[in-house]
Amino acid sequence: MDRHLRPNKFTDRALQLLLMVQRWLPNRSVVVADSSFAVLKLLAAARDTVCIVTRPRLNAALYDPAPARASDTKGRSQLKGALQPMFTQTLASATTLWHEAMLSQWYEEGDKTVEFATGTAIWYRATLPVVPLR
């Protein structure tokens, strides 16, 4: 046994599995996963083939999309825009627009009404790929 091999990460194996399932079932493109799959490298690698629905970290730094670059500027274009409020600030804000949806057959409770807020953002961290979120 070679002791110099590094172990595979959970997210590396998950990406392999997601790509295999996408190849086997090309018409199915949405995967629902728990928060352990909310990893920038995994989401960035799978974003062109599979849509992953997961709960991001509550302290994730989310940004507005990068503004359009003027044609007469020098240097590389921006990767991100302004910083958005944290999830905890959005929850506490009185200006957050909440929507309601009815979920039928909620375990043994029957129908259940849930409230949610939605928006778009860019999840960015230095040296890692940029991932668009909704």
Rank of each mutant, 00 (worst) to 15 (best):
G110C: 05
P132G: 06
G110M: 05
D111I: 00
L19H: 12
Q105W: 03
A101R: 15
D34F: 04
R55K: 15
L133D: 05
A61V: 02
Y107N: 08
P85H: 07
T127M: 07
A82E: 14
A70V: 00
L103W: 05
T54Q: 06
R76E: 12
M86E: 11
A92E: 11
Q105M: 09
F116V: 00
A60K: 06
Q84K: 14
W106G: 04
S36Q: 13
V39E: 11
R28H: 15
M102I: 11
L128T: 10
A60G: 10
L91D: 03
A14V: 07
S93Y: 03
A38N: 05
F37Y: 15
N8T: 10
I52W: 03
D2M: 08
P65T: 00
L103S: 01
A44V: 01
V131R: 02
A68E: 11
L91Q: 08
R6E: 15
Y124A: 07
L25I: 03
L17A: 14
I52C: 05
N27L: 12
T118C: 11
V131P: 02
V32Q: 08
P129Y: 02
T90Y: 06
A45K: 14
A66K: 00
P7D: 13
V21Q: 09
E108R: 11
L17I: 03
R134D: 12
L5G: 09
A60S: 15
G75V: 03
E115Y: 03
L43E: 07
E108D: 14
G81E: 01
D34A: 03
G81Q: 00
K9F: 13
A92K: 13
T95E: 15
A94F: 01
L25D: 09
V32N: 09
A45D: 15
A14N: 01
V130A: 10
W98L: 08
N59V: 02
N59K: 12
K112E: 11
L18S: 11
N59T: 12
L58T: 12
G119D: 14
G119P: 08
A66N: 02
A33N: 08
Y107S: 08
Y124T: 00
R6V: 07
V21Y: 07
C51N: 14
D72R: 13
A60V: 10
V130M: 06
D12E: 15
A44M: 02
T120C: 08
A68Q: 11
S71T: 08
Y107Q: 11
V30G: 01
D12K: 07
Q89M: 07
E100F: 04
W24Q: 12
